[in-house]
Nucleic acid binder design. Structure first.
Lengths: 170, 170
DNA sequence: ATCGATGCAAACGATTTGCAAACGT
DNA sequence: ACGTTTGCAAATCGTTTGCATCGAT
């Protein structure tokens, strides 16, 4: 008896020729350039919310010459490809995040430290759909942001502050 | 026996010397000018969400010479006075609305016709506070927007479209 | 008379675009 | 070689601000 060794491709990063990003480029006759790769690569490594200025800085570590305009152009492509999502926060700042295939998450934002945490609640999702249905609406997507104070900012002695913790981790 | 006739002031518009707007001006040593009155008056007559360009146009019907800068300056005052609230919607456009003393409302926005309806749900409010508490947060305010399709846009035969109905009412 | 308010135009920050050169296919 | 992409700088958009003048108190 013999066994065939099957190699299964499980990669998913931008490097993979089958990645959604590469697929999008091919499908639209677009080209794979160094600067795009640098930007997309930097973007996909991102975990939270990035400002395009940040993304420019990160991309420049790989490809020093990239311009801000290219970052804008590339992120627009990422959005069209469904890989990036933009959010405009209160302050008027626009931040981008990697689009999640999974149930979307909502945001919890500390007024004091500005840090953004994510949360999910099926219960809330269900209720909001019900509320919309009552008005004859069919909900496609939503945005839900809570503004408040984290423990530290509330003055709780041993309270945690997400922003500080993130800074320490650096 | 005689009766004293007591006159009770119940007015609330901007014309009333006791209006919150006038109170705000007095409290801060600010002046009541024609252009401010025109803008504030136009704003308070507003029912939904207004763009400042719109407000400028409305204000000019009363006081033709007003400039856009003054609209911006006045609306900023209205916000500080707690009488106006700004919302930045998806498109990046900023719209203003008369601030409600009552429980804030959330938004239901039709992707097709762009119309914005309001809704409230104590249930949801409670759940979101609970979710935040779990993260150690104390919620001060929030924003909750649902994007979807109204009946008409969904293709429902006799479906209603808030935008069309509003247009007919004009 | 004082000090705030206005209109205009210039200044601004974020984002977009025109163009000639450089690059991926 | 071809058409796309890039970097740069100039253009644009919404919003803010400096300033000389005007108006309200």
């Amino acid at each position: 008896m013999s066994f065939a060794v099957v190699k299964v491709t499980v990669e998913n990063g931008k490097g993979d020729v089958n990645s959604p990003w590469r697929a999008y480029l091919r499908k639209h006759g677009l080209k794979t350039t160094q600067q795009r790769e640098a930007i997309v690569d930097a973007f996909l490594r991102t975990s939270g919310h990035v400002a395009l200025e940040d993304l420019l800085a990160r991309a420049r570590r790989t490809h020093p010459g990239v311009g801000l305009a290219t970052v804008y152009r590339t992120v627009k492509l990422l959005q069209e490809a469904g890989l990036a999502a933009s959010r405009q926060f209160e302050s008027g700042h626009t931040l981008y995040e990697v689009a999640q295939g999974r149930a979307h998450h909502d945001h919890l934002i500390c007024r004091q430290c500005g840090y953004i945490v994510e949360f999910e609640s099926d219960e809330i999702e269900r209720l909001q759909s019900a509320a919309a249905r009552k008005m004859g609406f069919n909900v496609l997507s939503h945005r839900h942001e809570l503004f408040g104070l984290c423990e530290k900012s509330q003055g709780i002695p041993s309270g945690r502050c997400p922003a500080e913790e993130a800074a320490e981790r650096k």
